[in-house]
Design a protein around this nucleic acid. Structure first.
Length: 516
RNA sequence: GUCAGUGUAGCUCAGCUGGUUAGAGCACAGCAUUCAUAACGCUGAGGUCGAGAGUUCAAGUCUCUCCACUGACACCA
């Protein structure tokens, strides 16, 4: 089965922030999960590089727009690299291939007779780059966001006939699972029910964009450019892109993950555009929440922006990924708290999981020939076996619903129970009597086996840590799949064990590390 | 402003159609302790369930009012 998942195409006005890291980490976890399930995954990410804001930012830095984009794009790629993001394709909207695709797509929409030239007039905020929905008779309205006077503009734009797709969109968004989470689905339904209006897809006074064929003084406005990146990244033949059914083997996307702010464009505009071009809409769209920091909105004016690179250098990749996926309800807004970051990571990864692995390997090597106890007879029965099966099921169920938090909790439950089991059985006492050796062998084996399963389940969340655990168990991480690797009793005693060293070091709390 | 959602221990949250002394994890304190990463385990302290009023034998759970925060209300990359 094919599975296509996308992040948004990030706007390269500025360097990547924590929010885009969050989205991308979540997508990476899903992509890795789907690969472990045996699906052929296309994980697509990229950048949106056009627009007036970028043109201006570049100008203020005295750079050509393209050079500015190159620079920021490099930063994105660098960060995704550091976060071990397993993307398959990285789309740039300034690439030749993308431009070609936009033109092809546009001609399809033209053929459907869904484009017309219209006039747009109204109060325009340069800061927002958009028309404001204020009373046209107002004499000097002010942008509520920028607190600046609005400009009156009156210009020719090409429009897309969104209104024509009212019925089809209404049906689509009703489909169970198309929009998640549910609360946002209701908002969209509410919005659509009020009647869809056509929207403008071109600008005349914008040079940094893709030309509109046949209207050379126009360039495409964001949605007829950026959204199409999903298509150009999905084509089978990237080099000479042709928008045909043959080349679209990775389409439709199974899941677009985006921030809640652009949900409407993905759940309403985008499907309508695709329908117009004779193509299938995506299968599902997930709008996640935003991150605050210590209860406050992050912003430059507050000086409390948390730089993902800094966080990464401080806590490491596993800590960062784990905290974001494990502690924040995917879909809801979340609050980044330094204290909690340190506590959660230390407790879960170092104390519970890391220490479990460490103590068990030490015992095993000590009492069983520097290796794993051979215990084929009793491997079959263990309370931990039953529990692991239960937790694996919970994990899978939650993950399919993008409920990473519950999924992670299932892993922790299993690790806690294994620790608990050791304390109850106390093999370090039993071993003092040689006749107990079989019991100890069974116990140690079943805890090691739990560790193996924990490592596999951990893989989509914290791939690096997962591999470190598997390495200690002497297991080749490249051969892992859910289907083949999650059965109980697969740990092979003849493989032996590597020397235990802590797989996860503890973090020290440092309150004002990241405030300038 | 209109509509929707949220508000439960220091922190993150469970609490279905109202029913015994309100739960979990983390953090904290004490005990115990090496197989182990000052880890694990056990025990404990912690809440007038946003505020007020009402319905009821009984309300965190229903109704009303108020407060705080969040989101939607069309072109916010």
């Amino acid at each position: 089965m094919k599975y296509t998942i996308t992040t948004p195409l990030y706007y390269v006005n500025d360097k990547p922030h924590l929010g885009s890291s969050y989205t991308t980490i979540a997508c990476d976890a899903i992509a890795r999960f789907q690969r472990l399930k045996g699906n052929t995954v296309l994980f697509l990410t990229g950048v949106d590089e056009h627009g007036q804001k970028i043109e201006r930012t570049a100008a203020s830095k005295k750079l050509q727009p393209q050079l500015h984009c190159d620079e920021i794009t490099r930063k994105y790629k660098y960060l995704w690299d550091k976060l071990n993001i397993s993307y398959d394709r990285f789309v740039r909207t300034t690439s030749k291939e993308h431009t070609s695709l936009v033109h092809q797509f546009y001609s399809k929409v033209l053929k459907s007779d869904d484009i017309y030239m219209g006039r747009q007039s109204g109060w325009y905020c340069v800061g927002c780059e958009e028309y404001k929905d204020v009373d046209k008779n107002d004499k000097a309205p002010i942008c509520s966001i920028h607190k600046k006077e609005l400009e009156w503009r009156d210009e020719e734009n090409l429009f897309f006939k969104l209104s024509k797709y009212q019925d089809q969109i209404e049906k689509l968004i009703q489909i169970d699972g198309f929009i998640s989470p549910k609360s946002r689905k209701n908002e969209i339904i509410n919005f659509v029910s009020k009647g869809l209006r056509d929207f403008s897809i071109s600008r005349v006074n914008l040079r940094w964009g893709i030309d509109v064929p046949g209207n050379e003084d126009h360039t495409f406005y964001v949605w007829f450019d950026a959204l199409l990146g999903y298509l150009s990244g999905s084509l089978s033949y990237q080099d000479s892109p042709e928008l045909t059914n043959n080349s679209l083997t990775n389409w439709p996307a199974n899941l677009h993950v985006i921030g809640k702010d652009i949900l409407r464009f993905h759940a309403v505009y985008w499907p309508a555009m695709l329908l117009s071009a004779g193509m299938k809409p995506p299968i599902s769209v997930f709008g996640h929440g935003f991150l605050t920091r210590e209860g406050q909105k992050m912003g430059k004016s507050l000086g409390n922006v948390l730089d993902p690179i800094q966080l990464l250098e401080y806590g490491g990749i596993d800590a960062m990924r784990w905290y974001l996926l494990r502690d924040i309800e995917f879909g809801d807004d979340g609050d980044f708290q330094m204290r909690r970051f340190v506590d959660i990571v230390n407790s879960d990864l170092s104390n519970t999981i890391g220490n479990l692995l460490n103590r068990t390997i030490t015992m095993s090597k000590k009492w069983f020939n520097n290796s794993i106890p051979i215990d084929n007879s009793s491997v079959v029965e263990s309370p931990l076996k039953d529990l692991s099966e239960l937790k694996i099921n919970e994990y899978m169920e939650s993950f399919m619903k993008n409920n990473f938090k519950n999924s992670a909790n299932s892993i922790i439950d299993l690790a806690n129970s294994a620790n608990h089991y050791l304390n109850e059985q106390a093999p370090w006492k039993l071993i003092k009597d040689v006749s107990n050796k079989d019991i100890v062998a069974r116990d140690i084996y079943s805890v090691l086996e739990s560790c193996r399963i924990i490592a596999i389940l951990l893989n989509p969340f914290v791939p690096n840590l997962s591999i470190r655990i598997l390495n200690q168990l002497n297991i080749d991480s490249t051969l892992i799949t859910f289907e083949k690797s999650l059965n109980w009793g697969l740990l092979n005693p003849s493989n032996g064990l590597n020397n235990p060293t802590p797989v996860m070091n503890k973090l020290e709390f440092n309150e004002d590390l990241f405030y300038e």
